[in-house]
């Protein structure tokens, strides 16, 4: 199971990997805000390109990453198509009322340049959101994530939840497989080809009782082991995985602070007090 995890448990050694958890978490959150606030290709495109560079620089296991990229692209394309089906004229609302029909299938189903533009921007926005998440996940370890969250004043008990959850996912996944196998030998059918959706659900539910019981069985032992090592004794804690800030961290700090200010400016002027709700459309 740990091989299936996208996230690395042991830090890698590229430039992005070497940043502190604090830098990674803060940058990621600000970038998410940046993506969410903007519906402007001029803002999104640079980030999209940067995220590709970031991804390449991490030297990831392409085999694993490829699968995710394909899935996410397909899902989002499907989503876009659905958007288009729901309202082919959606672009004219966002792009200043124009309606330049490119292809017309029926009276209702047509593709206008504006809608194409709108949908493309939306698609790139979604993909960028995914890419930034991907770069973030590949660059960080769960412990760094815990440390990073702690650095933005998340209570450490909640940060612990993140790291402990990651720690025990492979164990629980192994239990899941064991239970599944033992039920299969007793005659439970989980193969989609051989069992209907309803019976699969029912059989999936059979796994749940033993899985829930064995998963929560370990809670007592884990919390004892933590109590015995003084967990929860202090109001603060430190992190072994969080190394001292290096020069790169300081550079990133400057960047994300500027970005944060920019976001604040943008949100106030464009989202809260918009002069014009329309998106940037170069072909008006």
């Amino acid at each position: 199971m740990e091989n299936r995890l996208l996230i690395n448990l042991i830090p890698g050694d590229t430039f992005l990997h070497r940043l502190t958890g604090k830098t990674k978490v803060r940058t990621f959150i600000i970038l998410l805000v940046y993506i969410i606030m903007s519906f402007d290709i001029r803002l999104i495109m640079p980030l999209f390109i940067l995220s590709i560079i970031g991804l390449v620089s991490l030297r990831p296991n392409w085999k694993k990453v490829k699968y995710f990229i394909i899935v996410i692209t397909v899902v989002n394309l499907l989503n876009i198509v659905l958007f288009w089906l729901a309202d082919p004229d959606i672009g004219s609302y966002w792009c200043g009322g124009g309606n330049t029909v490119l292809v017309s299938l029926t009276e209702r189903l047509f593709l206008s340049a504006e809608t194409l533009w709108y949908l493309s921007v939306r698609f790139i926005k979604m993909i960028t959101s995914f890419m930034v998440s991907l770069v973030f996940i590949l660059s960080i370890t769960p412990s760094e994530m815990a440390a990073g969250l702690y650095s933005i004043k998340v209570p450490y008990k909640i940060c612990t939840i993140f790291s402990i959850a990651f720690r025990y996912i492979p164990d629980i996944a192994r239990d899941y497989n064991n239970i599944k196998v033992s039920l299969q030998t007793r005659g439970v059918e989980l193969d989609p080809k051989k069992a209907s959706l309803k019976s699969r659900l029912k059989q999936n539910a059979l796994i749940l009782v033993p899985l829930i019981i064995t998963s929560f069985e370990r809670v007592g032992n884990i919390s004892n082991a933590m109590d015995l090592r003084g967990y929860g004794r202090g109001k603060t804690r430190t992190y072994y995985s969080e190394h001292e800030e290096l020069k790169a961290d300081k550079v990133f700090k400057a960047i994300y602070i500027i970005l944060l200010l920019f976001c604040a400016y943008w949100i106030i002027t464009q989202n809260i007090m918009p002069q014009d709700f329309r998106m940037w459309y170069p072909f008006v």
């Binding site: 008990k157 790291s163 025990y168 996912i169 919390s223 929860g232």
Partner: peptide, 18 residues
């Protein structure tokens, strides 16, 4: 919010993920 709660939530989250 004692250690047991923290761990149980974490195990719950892990189970959710799985």
């Amino acid at each position: 919010w004692n250690t047991k709660t923290v761990v149980a939530i974490a195990i719950g989250a892990a189970l959710f993920g799985v």
